[in-house]
Nucleic acid binder design. Sequence first.
DNA 1: TTGACATGTCACCGTACGATGTCATATAAA
DNA 2: TTTATATGACATCGTACGGTGACATGTCAA
Lengths: 98, 98
Amino acid sequence: MNVRTALELGAAIRERRRQLNLDQDKLAKIVGVSRKWVIDVEKGKTRAEIGLILRTLDALGISVSLDTTGTGVSGANTPDTIETPDIDSVLDRTRDRR
Amino acid sequence: MNVRTALELGAAIRERRRQLNLDQDKLAKIVGVSRKWVIDVEKGKTRAEIGLILRTLDALGISVSLDTTGTGVSGANTPDTIETPDIDSVLDRTRDRR
DNA sequence: TTGACATGTCACCGTACGATGTCATATAAA
DNA sequence: TTTATATGACATCGTACGGTGACATGTCAA
């Protein structure tokens, strides 16, 4: 499953937690966070700490893998075709994702 | 590439940034964070905000995919073999990952 | 050498984190 | 009904966030 936002991440965590028959309190104790934190994260909190998120995913048996999507920001940038990244186009793709 | 810690994540971000010939300042401007933030994250900051991390990965053309690793916390938990998750074993797996 | 650039460190500040504990709804079983 | 459980909302508090701007290295080319 691909994830691009905190909302999707929260949904994945919640879904997996339920698969494992854990309630928020049990998961919180396992991960070592407060139940409030679990609630917020499952709701898609964007400012949650990455370390806690990773511990949560780990506890739920969810592996995280990264992959470079084809070209990246502005084209391949192979050694002999170095280009200055086009900041504007990047901003277009990044804009309004708050 | 699999990621389990903020340190590995930071390394991946740094590596990809360099692949794209971006300096920390350019990446910071693209993502909308300070250069200091980029420095800290690349060093493996565990308390960085997940929303900013996701925006950074997105800007770098790094896709994030989640996958449930086989059994998960305490066994399959198929509908007719529901078990109460063994918290102790989970704690064993989660312990000392600070 | 000088100059420009990339990276890292530092102090300051406003803001929000995450923990704790309590209360309010459900929902379901006794 | 009562009881237990699960989820969510709320206030409070100490701590660290992330931004800003300045300064210190290091590297590399002119």
